[in-house]
């Protein structure tokens, strides 16, 4: 565990909590892509099946349980409790275009051709693109609430910090995992356009709105 790993995990946790609180406090999931949240629930479920087979640490287990629990709670709030506020018309990204190729890639390119390992690989690949329905929704409506942009910033920052963690581990532990690194780079790159808008607009007190 190094400082980048820890801050990455905390940034991820902050993102998840920010989104849950935003929906809970405003009693609304307007502007939030339910499809992205379903994808994240699938990501956590397929990645953390090793909860049942191996124990790493109290930290590891509790973070996994919190991530999975919050992901399902978010999906529940969007599709059940506050479904009247869900903006399904603007959440029109075709997720099968993500899930099917990612599933195929996980079967073809993995560390080990076993059930759990393929599911883990699938979750890594899927996570790298799971935010696309959310970004697509924002580009469609042309705007995002400021609290939603804080959520996205923390979520993007988390993987960027993991990249630094992997560089650290490469130098100090001679460890690297090509699958996680490539997917992590893709994931971080997808946020670059958003990072630019966040820094130039939101941090200067302006609302994030895209030119028509």
């Amino acid at each position: 565990m190094n400082v980048f790993r820890l801050t990455g995990d905390l940034s991820h946790l902050a993102a998840i909590i920010i989104l849950l609180l935003k929906i809970w406090k405003s009693r609304s999931c307007a502007g939030i892509s339910g499809k992205s949240q379903i994808l994240f629930a699938i990501v956590f479920t397929t990645r953390y099946l090793d909860l049942l087979t191996s124990f790493i640490s109290i930290y590891n287990t509790s973070m996994k349980v919190i991530y999975i629990g919050c992901a399902y709670a978010t999906v529940y709030l969007i599709y059940m409790k506050f479904r009247a506020t869900y903006d399904g018309n603007h959440d029109s990204f075709r997720v099968e275009f993500l899930v099917v190729p990612v599933g195929g890639l996980a079967v073809l390119v993995n560390h080990d051709f076993s059930f759990l390992e393929i599911l883990w690989t699938f979750s890594i690949y899927l996570e790298s693109v799971a935010i696309l329905p959310q970004l697509f929704m924002i580009s469609k409506t042309g705007e995002a609430e400021t609290i939603t942009t804080h959520y996205l910033f923390c979520l993007g920052l988390y993987r960027a910090l993991y990249l630094l963690n992997w560089i650290w581990r490469f130098y100090f532990e001679s460890f690297f995992d090509m699958i996680a690194i490539v997917a992590g780079v893709v994931q971080t790159v997808l946020y670059c356009d958003f990072f630019y808008l966040y820094i130039t607009k939101v941090l200067k007190g302006k609302k994030l709105s895209l030119p028509a």
Binding site: M1, D9, H111, E117, W120, R169, F175, D177, I179, A180
Partner: peptide, 10 residues
């Protein structure tokens, strides 16, 4: 080469 994954990461 592909190194095996880090089981301790989230």
């Amino acid at each position: 080469c592909l190194r095996k994954r880090a089981k301790d990461e989230l």
